[in-house]
């Protein structure tokens, strides 16, 4: 769950139309166009999640974040049968109460609920939960692991630097790598994560 309290605004007098804002937006809310040689940037306020990515990466400092009427991005876990939530979490190898986004403190159960509610792509998950609208880094893999666990495939838009793909987990490390590098404690760490995944849910 995330409270959005700022939106992006473009100072067109500084913008040079480089499209960086479009490329780093996790929900594709920024669109840069050229009409009759003139640059136009549209920020869709209905989509903007207040993550600051565009403001932080604009080379011209042409974007500022301005306060907006706060609203919440969240999915209600209680709307779903908890067994279904639990099942999807386990398939993605997370405990339902485990934190999957440090910035929003979103838990795996909410991520599962968002997908059960119809989110089929990473950007849809961000809009449904607020995950991915903080640092934009650490929840990257949980989101992609959950989508894969739900059997969902998506294609990254070419006009984007977002969501390059799901990467390997400790459950998938090859026996050769594990045997060659015992200092990394692969199997012990996998067992630790397994214990977390399988621990009973307490309400």
């Amino acid at each position: 769950m995330k409270v959005v309290n700022v939106h992006a605004r473009v100072r067109m007098e500084l913008c040079k139309g480089c499209k960086n804002c479009e490329m780093v937006c996790p929900v594709y809310a920024a669109k840069v166009k050229k009409k009759k040689g003139e640059v136009q940037v549209e920020i869709n306020d209905q989509k903007c999640v207040g993550c600051w990515n565009c403001e932080q990466r604009c080379p011209e400092h042409a974007i500022e974040m301005v306060p907006c009427e706060p609203y919440t991005l969240s999915t209600d876990v209680a709307s779903f049968v908890y067994k279904e939530i639990e099942s999807l979490c386990h398939k993605a190898r997370f405990h339902p109460k485990q934190v999957v986004c440090y910035c929003t403190a979103s838990r795996a159960e909410e991520l599962a609920a968002a997908i059960l509610a119809g989110a089929k792509t990473p950007d849809a998950v961000v809009l449904a939960t607020g995950m991915g609208a903080g640092c934009g880094i650490e929840c990257n893999q949980p989101i992609q692991r959950f989508l894969e666990a739900a059997g969902l495939k998506y294609e990254r838009p070419k006009q984007s630097y977002q969501w390059y793909g799901r990467t390997l987990t400790v459950w998938e490390v090859s026996p050769e790598v594990k045997a060659q590098h015992p200092v990394f404690h692969f199997d012990e760490d996998r067992r630790l994560l397994d214990r977390i995944v399988k621990a009973p849910v307490k309400f």
């Binding site: 880094i137 692991r145 760490d189």
Partner: peptide, 23 residues
């Protein structure tokens, strides 16, 4: 590294195994 790799380190591997990502 990209966000995907950093998230692999902090979410996919476990606290000690994660250090193999850089290697």
């Amino acid at each position: 590294a990209r966000a995907e790799t950093r998230s692999t380190y902090h979410m996919n591997m476990g606290p000690r195994a994660a250090n193999f990502v850089a290697r």
